[in-house]
Every structure is written in C-alpha cells, then in structure tokens.
Nucleic acid binder design. Structure first.
Length: 397
DNA sequence: CCTCCACTGGAAACCTAGGCTC
DNA sequence: GAGCCTAGGTTTCCAGTGGAGG
C-alpha cells in the first residue's frame, strides 16, 4: 500500500498526469460556447431582449431531459445579458430550487441579488412566505428594478410545495410597477404542468422552448471539445471519445452522463498510470457509474423496500407475488420488523421496478391466476454488500 | 366459448409524524 | 402546550381480468 501511495505522489510530482484542466469536465463547468444549442440561445436572447429597452420580457419555460443543456444555455445567455445591460437597475438571478430545498430558501436566495435595505433583509427563518414575497415586491417596486429570475428544477418546487409563490409572482406585475419581474423556469419534467393552476400556467409559459436530447454525433463533438480543454493532447483518442459518446448516448442523449463518463475514464487512466484512455478504462468507468448508481439507490431505500429486495434476491430465476410474500413475511419475523400487507408489497415492487432494481411484470397463468413475475436485475453480491451496511440486516443472509 | 384462479390495482379510510398557529 | 392541517405511507375493501384448461 505504501508503495502505491509513493507511486501516486511520484507521478503527481512529475506532472505525469492525464489532466491539464480537470474542471472542464465538471458537471457545473460552463464552456465558452455550447455547440448545437445556438438556436435555443438565440431564441432565449430574443425573448429576453426587450429588457434592454426597459420593457418586460415574456415569462419563459425551458423543457428537456437531464443533460440536454438547459441550465448551461440559460446561464450563458444571462451572463451575456448582464454584460450587455448598462442600466443599473437590471437584476439577473439564478436559483436552483432543488438545492435550495424549500420555498423560503429559494426566495431568500433570490433576495440576495436584490440588495434589500437593512431593515428588510431576509433572516434565515422566522418570516412567513407572504412576508418574504412582500419585501421582495416592495424592493422591486421602490427601486424600479427590472428583474429576471431563473428557477432551475422548477418541477421540484411545484411538486414539493405547490405553485404558491409562482402564483404570487406571475400575477404581481401590476403591483411591481415601475419595476417588473420575468420568470424563466427550467424543468426536466413535462408533466409538472398538470399540477399548476391554469392561470399560473398560462402566465408562466408565455413562451416555451424544448431542448431535444443530443444525438450520438453531437455528443461526440461536445466531448471532443471538452477533451481538448481537459486532457493533455492525445490522451483521449477519437476512438475513446466515440465509445464514450455511444455508451452514454444510447439511452437518451444525456451530455452530463457522457461527460461524467469521460472524466471518470480519465481518472481511471490516471490511476493506472496510463498515458491514454483506452476502451477498458471506459468500461471500468461505466461499470463504476452503474455500481455507484445502484449502490446509492439501494442505500437510500426504506427498510421495508430493502427487505423486499432482499427477499427477491433469495429466488434465483425469478418468483411471483404469492411466493415472494411468504418469503418476505418470514424474513420480517426473523429481522423483527413489521410485516406489510400483500397489497402494499405489490406497490413497493412497482417502485423497485421503476428504480430498475427489479423487473416486475404481470403475467397470466390461465386457470392458475394472474400474478407478477419478479426478477432481480442487479448483482446479488452488490446487493448483499450494500444491505449489510444497514444495521437492521446485520444478521440476515 | 365459458370458468375461474390468484392475483392486480383503484379508491377510500386510517394512521402517524411533523410543522404551524394560537 | 393544545389544536389543527398536511403529506406520506399503509391498510381495507373490492371490482376487475388474461388466458389455460375445461
């Protein structure tokens, strides 16, 4: 072990590393230009441009699956917009509602960009949402601020807390005059509109823009560009980049995933002391990402779901609901945890299926009834290893 | 073509835990 | 603190069903 530690340090000292600029492959790195998103950038710029003449731009909604460049495009246009604006009362704010985690913190974060007077500062806690909205509105009105607020992962906010603050913001514009507030919502989920008040929806989606997934060819080009920044020359061969693009893109053109894959492959190569990323690095990286994903998915499961998953793993070659329920009940008794009903088990199986940990499909066996055919989709050993971390399972297996 | 199994999956009631208000 | 509200998870109840075997 100490030998490998020494080896690592020696390599680092000699600068014999594959990276020049590792952060070019970080998930939140904003590259100087965003290939294949020119159309979207232009359109957003077009929609927001009235603000430079002092009038209110339409609200805007951006849609697209993860890794289609929504956030990056939005951020880069805003950066440009800020540069362009000579007016001092232009405020551009970006908030990710998921990382802020609550309505209150989302608003508090926004308020930081508004430069509230001392007596109106938003404390960590203690105010009602209405009061916070009030202070923000007052400030916008008083100083005639022209504000653009980008709300990333807005679907999360709506799912967790409803459309209350969106409602406030979308209909408050008369009260803000001479200032105004334009909203740019970013969502992964097309369905989130269902839960919205129709008035909010129509106001929020005055303009809509859909981000299509990247094709494999596009991913390849994106990766090539990033690789040029991130790695020493010839570390990432075209063939390696091709493979990354193909592996990550086969599902749904997720650039984030592709970039992660390339970064991890680079880390693998570095660790192995290679000067080039080869196919095996990428496969190792891909496996690692998959294992991490599964691991994380299992770890964050509630006990009951874990127990059911464990029960499924007892059956090689699949099982069905009735059989599984018996096994599961016994397991619960053994572990000393509550036993849920069969109805519930059926529901949880559906969840596990959605997570891709288990395959559960309804089959009919004619006279012998209908049931779910259930199969474990992940390695038994990974599962057992991860589950054994949970104290409730220490004496299982 | 009908039966009838072994469940499925919808609907609604129930049961907490947590947060908020007074 | 008591009282109220809400959100999730769970249970209860039950009508519904694909298709092998009659």
């Amino acid at each position: 072990m100490s030998r490998s530690v020494k080896e690592i340090f020696r390599r680092a000292k000699e600068g014999q590393t594959v990276f020049i600029e590792r952060k070019a492959l970080n998930p939140d790195y904003l590259p100087p230009n965003l290939p294949f998103r020119e159309a979207q950038s232009d359109e957003i710029a077009q929609i927001l441009s009235p603000i430079l003449k002092g009038s209110k731009p339409s609200n805007l909604l951006l849609y697209g699956k993860t890794g289609t460049g929504k956030t990056a495009v939005a951020k880069s246009v805003l950066k440009e917009l800020e540069k362009e604006a000579e007016r001092k009362n232009l405020v551009v704010a970006y908030v990710n509602t998921r990382t802020e985690n609550t309505e209150y913190r989302t608003l508090a974060e926004f308020s930081k960009s508004l430069d509230l007077p001392k007596e109106d500062q938003i404390p960590f806690t203690g105010l009602s949402i209405g009061e916070v909205v009030g202070r923000i509105s007052r400030q916008i009105k008083r100083n005639g601020i022209h504000a653009v607020l980008v709300m990333d992962e807005i679907d999360y906010l709506v799912k967790e807390f409803g459309d209350g603050i969106l409602y406030e913001f979308t209909r408050s514009n008369e009260r803000l005059s001479p200032g105004f507030l334009s909203l740019v919502g970013i969502s992964n989920d097309l369905k989130f509109k269902d839960g919205l008040d129709p008035r909010v929806l129509s106001s929020l989606s005055e303009e809509e823009l859909v981000f299509p997934p990247y094709t494999v060819d596009e991913l390849r080009e994106i990766l090539t560009e990033r690789a040029k920044e991130a790695f020493r020359p010839s570390v990432a061969s075209p063939a390696a980049i091709n493979l990354c693009a193909a592996m990550a893109g086969s599902e749904h053109g997720d650039a984030r995933r592709a970039i992660d894959l390339l970064r991890i492959a680079g880390e693998v190569a570095e660790r192995e002391g290679l000067k080039q990323i080869d196919d095996s690095c990428i496969r190792v990286a891909s496996d690692k990402m998959e294992v991490d994903r599964v691991d994380e998915a299992i770890r964050s499961l509630p006990v009951q779901n874990k127990a059911i998953l464990f029960a499924v793993s007892r059956f090689d070659g699949g099982t069905n609901t009735g059989e599984l329920y018996i096994a599961y009940s016994n397991l619960c008794k053994r572990l000393g945890i509550e036993t849920l009903t069969q109805r519930r088990l059926s529901g949880i199986l559906g969840d596990l299926d959605l997570l891709g940990l288990v395959e559960a499909s309804v089959v009919s066996k004619g006279r012998r009834g209908r049931t779910k055919k259930i199969q474990l989709l992940i390695g038994k050993d990974t599962l057992e290893k991860t589950l054994s971390e949970d104290p409730a399972f220490s004496m299982a297996s």
